[in-house]
Design a protein around this nucleic acid. Structure first.
Lengths: 183, 183
DNA sequence: GATGACATGTAATTCGTTACATGATTCC
DNA sequence: GGAATCATGTAACGAATTACATGTCATC
């Protein structure tokens, strides 16, 4: 039920509609949700039921009404409580490593080209993260410390993918060095 | 549908029962499934329907029958095809970073102790991964290359968590240095 | 005339987790 | 007597994805 809190976080920063949130989540390289309406709109209904957000309907002409949500005081309190919950370790799904576990059934060159393709994917991620880090419309920086935290979080993601890229290069090198000995 | 292929991989290495697989998955720090029976036994049924594994029932006295599965030739072929599918980027869920995004609503010391708790979690993960790397009952090494691949994959995971630990230390240091300026 | 942005939502389906259910044996 | 291991499976629920559904306006 973390998406509720993530949404609550953004609503504690500024009033937003479901559609705004959808765009934010879709544009983000680091929010692990697919920006599907179902989850977002249901989360907003639940947050409203919990009294953590308030809702205001803005009538528009020739367009659907905008349902604008913002965090209430109770919501801000709930957010602070959640922020302080004991952190769990990060959890990664590296499907490629599961493929590579059985890579010994392939030829050496095939393994190498898989690693090359993986490197491209990872480099592309780094690129997208850097782009996202540069333009910041969806980034709060109400205090220097908040700005630092967000920059720092962004660096975390970039660093992770760079570490992955480094591992790929090292692994390819080692495989190539040993290729003569083990096909 | 990746769990099917992961299971198929293990069955291409050696014959196993659902219960064996459950233990392997539960013991693994890197397989992102919770070793629930439901998924495992359904996957085995499906793999059998696909003709990718064969099933042999071993009668036992005073204990339930063992349903031993092993990969068929068709299964090995399907595995090879899957191993060669284009790799996707790794995907991580770092719930803590989502908490930290709104960490500016806390005091400096609270943020620091959150980071300290996160560091402990991450260090613990590194420890568990190292332990798992040392004793290898569930690790195939039919060829030097396979042994290398598995070791390499293990290093990947350790490296990732070590990078995370490094980031935490850097972030704490930076926050402490700036604490006088920004509360 | 088609595509895409704006803006709301629902339905169908799959994926994943927890808990339930059974039953013998062994170890503490 | 109670817990753990062996060994199979099912049920109930929750989380997540994809696709469906509607309607206006602006742009190409």
């Amino acid at each position: 039920m973390s998406i509720k809190h993530v949404i609550l976080g953004y609503l504690s920063w500024q009033p937003l509609t479901g559609y705004d949130l959808k765009k934010i989540i879709a544009a983000s390289e680091t929010l692990p949700w697919s920006a599907n309406n179902n989850q977002i709109y249901r989360a907003l209904v639940q947050l409203h039921e919990d009294g953590w957000v308030s809702k205001m309907v803005e009538n528009q002409e020739g367009a659907p009404d905008r349902h604008v949500y913002r965090a209430t005081d109770a919501g801000r309190k709930a957010l602070r409580d959640w922020v302080q919950t004991p952190p769990g370790p990060p959890q990664s799904k590296k499907a490629f490593l599961h493929q590579l576990m059985w890579g010994d059934c392939l030829e050496g060159e095939q393994v190498d080209s898989l690693l090359a393709a993986y490197l491209e994917e990872v480099n592309n991620k780094v690129f997208l993260l850097r782009v996202q880090a540069d333009r910041k419309p969806d980034t709060p920086d109400r205090t220097p410390r908040e700005a630092f935290l967000w920059k720092s979080i962004c660096q975390n993601w970039i660093g992770q993918y760079e570490a992955e890229a480094h591992w790929i290069r090292e692994t390819r090198r080692a495989l190539q060095e040993n290729a003569p000995r083990w096909g």
